[in-house]
């Protein structure tokens, strides 16, 4: 996947003076409007983001400092969280801008050539592939849909009836266990005979209570998990109904989702441009679906079809 050229070799198109610049390629498009690129900072503020024609297409490129984009330097920079964010947003901003005027194939972050001529040569080799994918995504956009488990699952009447007693038992058992753990005999702490008897009774049952609690918690967890998966599946099915293609993306870790809860589905859908209404209707429908009451559905877009440009369909 990764091509690393350790020895740069002959620098086509680069004279001694230009040797310190590299050509950064953001995207490939067909009939891009140069005006949409005006003023974009790209990856090197001050250098214009421009169109580089090759074959029947154009690449969206920018001159960048070869020193700043050397393999080792770049790796270090992108390992820095703030720098990675800046680069990623700048890359995305250029792609989004050009996509406003022409069918656009985004390239992944940091595709670089040692000069325009080398970029042109490499791109020309792939022209046929670019044309095929452009054909597929032209007039289409990507919508992102994520499904999160709600933090507090809504309590159904049947459930609270079965869960509540277990909870009571749980609390008693825990308290008993804590006392025991604190090396204080339960009976001594209780003070009165009645209370002591109660504590003993509770102690005798704590083993069973504990098992019940474990089983209850497991059942609850399985139930929620199952319900979550059903909901995610329902959402996915509904969105696939309005899409020409779909892709599952990796679900985000709770660390990234923050307070939104566990992510059950992260998917992308390729939808005809202008079909926002259909997407909205599908989302509204699943939100109203009883199977989806325990989840939240988040929609983002429209995106340039990042998730649909690589590989065959």
């Amino acid at each position: 996947m990764t091509q690393t050229v350790g020895e740069p070799g002959p620098r086509t198109g680069s004279r001694t003076g230009a040797a310190c610049t590299a050509t950064y390629v953001f995207a490939v498009c067909r009939g891009g409007d140069p005006a949409t690129l005006t003023g974009l900072p790209g990856q090197a503020a001050g250098n214009p983001v421009r169109l580089l024609p090759f074959g029947s297409l154009e690449a969206v490129v920018q001159d960048v400092s070869a020193a700043e984009f050397g393999e080792e330097t770049l790796r270090e920079r992108l390992t820095d969280r703030a720098e990675l964010e800046r680069c990623a947003r700048a890359h995305h901003a250029v792609i989004a801008a050009v996509a406003g005027s022409a069918p656009t194939l985004p390239l992944p972050l940091a595709t670089l050539y040692l000069g325009d001529e080398r970029a042109r040569a490499a791109l020309r080799e792939d022209e046929r592939r670019f044309l095929a994918v452009l054909q597929r995504i032209a007039g289409r956009v990507e919508w992102g849909v994520k499904v999160y488990a709600r933090r507090e699952a809504p309590e159904g009447p049947d459930r609270s009836a079965t869960v509540a007693p277990t909870r009571t038992l749980t609390r008693t058992a825990t308290r008993t266990a804590t006392r025991t753990a604190a090396r204080t005999p339960v009976r001594t702490t209780a003070g009165s005979a009645a209370a002591g008897a109660g504590a003993v009774d509770s102690g005798a049952h704590s083993g069973r209570a504990y098992l019940e609690r474990v089983r209850g918690a497991r059942q609850e967890r399985e139930r929620r998990q199952q319900a979550g998966l059903v909901a995610a599946e329902t959402v996915d099915r509904a969105l696939r109904g309005v899409a020409v293609a779909s892709r599952r993306l990796r679900t985000h870790d709770t660390t990234l989702t923050g307070e939104r809860g566990v992510q059950l589905l992260n998917a992308a859908y390729l939808v005809a441009d202008g079909h926002e209404r259909e997407v909205a209707a599908a989302v509204a429908e699943v939100r109203a679906d009883p199977a989806c009451q325990g989840v939240e559905v988040e929609v983002t877009g429209p995106w340039v079809p990042y998730s649909f440009v690589d590989g065959g369909e």
């Binding site: 995305h92 992944p108 670019f130 995106w303 990042y306």
Partner: peptide, 29 residues
Amino acid sequence: STPSGPANLADILERVLDKGIVIAGDIKI
């Protein structure tokens, strides 16, 4: 997905790192 909108970083990262059409570059990490 326009530059004016502060899209979620995770959404952008998963697209610009994981997706897009891959071609071999001269310098590529």
